Simulated assay, not measured.
Amino acid sequence: MADNRTMAQMLQAPIEGYEDAIVIPPINANNFELKQPLINLVQSNKFTGRQDPHNHLRFFNKVTSTFRHPEVPNTSVKLLLFPFSLDGEARDWLDKEPPRSILTWDDLVSKFINQFFPPSKTTYLRNKITNFFQEPNETFNEAWERFKGLLRQCPHHGFSELHQLDTFYNSLNSNDQDALDSAAGAISRKNASRRF
C-alpha cells in the first residue's frame, strides 16, 4: 500500500503516544475541580523513590481522605492526585509505565509497591520478623517497639495476629516470658472471679 503523505507530513512529530499511564474514570459531577491547596498538600511530601513507599501511601491516603465530593469517588481523586505526589526516580517510573496501563487505584498501589518494595525486600523482612529475637541488653519495651517497627516496614507480611504474638513471645528472654505469663495469669484470674 502506497504512503501518499507529503514530505512535510512525514516529517511532522507524531501526536500519538502521549497518554498517561493512569486512566481516570469519567467524572460526571458539576463544579468538580481539584483545589490548589489540596495539590500543594500532596506535593508537600513528594516520594522520590528513596523513602518508605508504605509511609508515602499512608500519608497520601490521609491527605486524600480529607477531600469529599458527593458525586466523585475517592479513588478517582486519588488517581488524579497521585502523580503530583511523585518526584525524581518515582516520577520517571510512572512516566515509563505503558499508556493507559493503570485502570484502578488498586492497580496503581500494586505497581507502585512492586516497584519500590520488591518481593525480595518482603522476603527479607518476613525472615527478620520470623527470626526475631530480643537482644541481650534490650528491655521488653524496646524489643516490642523494634518488633512493631518490623511489622510496620512490611504491612503486607501476611502473618496473623496470633502468629505475630507467638513469634514475639518466643523471642523473649525467660525473665520477660515469666513476667508476661504472670500478668496473663493475673488477668485470667480476675476474669474468672468476675464470672462467679
Score class of each variant (00 low, 15 high):
127 N>V: 10
89 E>A: 06
141 N>L: 12
133 F>V: 07
102 I>V: 14
195 R>V: 13
92 D>M: 10
147 F>N: 05
83 P>T: 00
192 A>I: 05
181 D>G: 09
37 P>A: 08
70 P>S: 11
163 H>I: 06
138 E>F: 05
180 L>D: 00
91 R>L: 01
193 S>T: 04
190 K>C: 13
101 S>N: 03
129 I>F: 02
56 H>T: 12
180 L>Q: 14
135 E>W: 09
121 K>H: 11
99 P>F: 01
119 P>T: 04
121 K>E: 08
41 L>W: 03
11 L>H: 06
102 I>H: 03
143 A>P: 01
113 I>N: 08
129 I>H: 03
161 E>V: 07
114 N>G: 04
77 V>G: 00
47 F>C: 01
33 E>T: 05
45 N>W: 09
98 P>H: 06
22 I>D: 06
89 E>M: 11
94 L>M: 12
74 N>G: 08
89 E>Y: 11
127 N>S: 13
41 L>V: 01
161 E>M: 02
138 E>G: 15
70 P>E: 08
162 L>S: 15
13 A>H: 05
123 T>N: 07
73 P>G: 14
78 K>E: 09
47 F>Y: 03
1 M>N: 15
179 A>W: 04
103 L>R: 14
101 S>W: 11
124 Y>L: 06
194 R>S: 08
142 E>H: 13
66 T>E: 14
164 Q>C: 04
158 G>N: 14
33 E>P: 04
63 V>A: 08
154 C>Q: 14
9 Q>G: 09
162 L>E: 09
9 Q>K: 12
181 D>V: 00
87 D>L: 04
117 F>S: 11
2 A>V: 13
123 T>L: 13
153 Q>F: 02
186 A>R: 07
102 I>S: 07
50 R>Y: 12
129 I>P: 02
182 S>E: 06
33 E>L: 07
51 Q>V: 05
135 E>K: 10
21 A>I: 03
16 E>R: 12
164 Q>K: 11
5 R>S: 08
47 F>A: 11
175 N>S: 07
122 T>S: 09
27 I>A: 06
52 D>S: 15
132 F>Y: 07
29 A>M: 09
118 P>C: 05
125 L>A: 05
63 V>L: 03
120 S>H: 15
69 H>I: 05
186 A>Q: 13
19 E>T: 03
144 W>N: 14
47 F>S: 00
181 D>R: 05
21 A>M: 12
123 T>M: 15
190 K>S: 10
1 M>Y: 11
54 H>A: 06
